[in-house]
Design a protein around this nucleic acid. Structure first.
Lengths: 208, 208
DNA sequence: AACGTATCTAACAATTTTGTTAGCACAAAA
DNA sequence: TTTTGTGCTAACAAAATTGTTAGATACGTT
């Protein structure tokens, strides 16, 4: 077996593991299911990754990295005027989560059920958030001084943006039946929701 | 053993099961842990509740009921003017979740991992949400006609309120280290956050 | 061709976890 | 006093799940 196929076999296990862990969580995931989905014997899974725990670490690592990308997206383009920048940041973050809809629940559950892993997340995401925070707060302070926008604490604003964007995907399974024709097509609903989130945040910083 | 103690024993198991299921989820929960926490042998747990599944159903049932209360709280006081009413609804809902901080994650995970149970939730929560929606939309339509507020789709407004209020508690474990002194005391942070959520929503419906 | 190494399989082992059962103790009813 | 039923325990049973191991197979290198 050549190197490409070897790669592909290990990759197949990783892909199956990602799916299993993201949808069922660590406790609900079964190594036998992962092996079966990957089309290998479960001994192979242990051959490559030794334990369920180690395989899980690989997925957690990858997902925490993805999470830091999502936080980076929220920063927006620093060359734009502040309102446009925030609008672009919300949009980019929303699209990022839309492309990784299982990520929020996974990260939240993983952190809550294993607080000791928080440091790992912090190393990945902490500096990104600090950058976003400092950069944005500086611009907002100046823009508010000039009377262009209402001053806000960026930490609070970021929590609001994360709330609005992420919750849409966390609660999607509920809302679908409750919202009726509004959610007939996913694409349409997400577009409306994204616009609503932008509107809500921009009104929050609008000078009155 | 008299009836009170019998009650209390069954109640102890239920209380321990609630804690275990809420914090660890169905897959992570262990019947032996529940029995131990309740101070009974694990055979007793099976004696009273037969299976883990049946015990879990009891907890799910109770939590779905609690969830419908939380949705009811968001309706606010219909006798108040619309802005005051919405403000009161946000506040009541926030306080309700603050008193049941583990509820959102539990319900979200439970629904996502077992979509077949959605019907159960819908029977409990559906009519409450319909009531809240119809009542609020009617008042908002009239108030917007009179030019007092900006017209909004109440479904979108409700999603925003739920997002802002619930995410605060879902993501609390992350934010705590990231937000620094802002979150030194939980009570203080929650008060600030509640005010911020109210401000964000009220600005969304403010006439410009 | 012979050797060494990485890949892979089938079978087994250990542990955990859920669930059962036979029977004891005790209290209330007959 | 016997009977009956409920609460309860200890021990056992069954199944699922993770992990190991001995050896087979393939494959490149010398």
């Amino acid at each position: 077996m050549d190197n490409q196929e070897r790669q592909s076999k290990e990759q197949q296990i990783l892909a199956a593991a990602e799916q299993e862990f993201l949808t069922k969580g660590y406790d609900g995931a079964r190594t036998t299911s992962i092996a079966q989905a990957a089309g290998v014997t479960h001994a192979m899974l242990h051959y490559y990754f030794r334990t369920k725990e180690q395989l899980f670490e690989r997925i957690v690592d990858e997902k925490f990295e993805t999470m830091s990308h999502s936080m980076f997206a929220i920063m927006g383009d620093p060359s734009l005027p502040i309102v446009e920048r925030i609008k672009g940041g919300i949009e980019a973050h929303f699209d990022f989560i839309a492309a990784n809809p299982l990520l929020p629940r996974f990260v939240i559950n993983e952190i809550i059920s294993r607080p000791e892993r928080y440091k790992l997340l912090y190393k990945r995401v902490g500096s990104v958030i600090d950058n976003v925070y400092c950069g944005l707060q500086f611009e907002i302070d100046r823009s508010a001084e000039r009377g262009e926008i209402e001053w806000v604490d960026v930490k609070m604003l970021l929590i609001s943006i994360l709330s609005l964007n992420i919750f849409t995907f966390l609660a999607y399974p509920f809302m679908e039946p409750l919202m009726g024709e509004l959610m007939a097509d996913r694409e349409g609903f997400l577009a409306v929701r994204k616009a609503e989130n932008i509107e809500t945040i921009l009104r929050r910083i609008k000078k009155q």
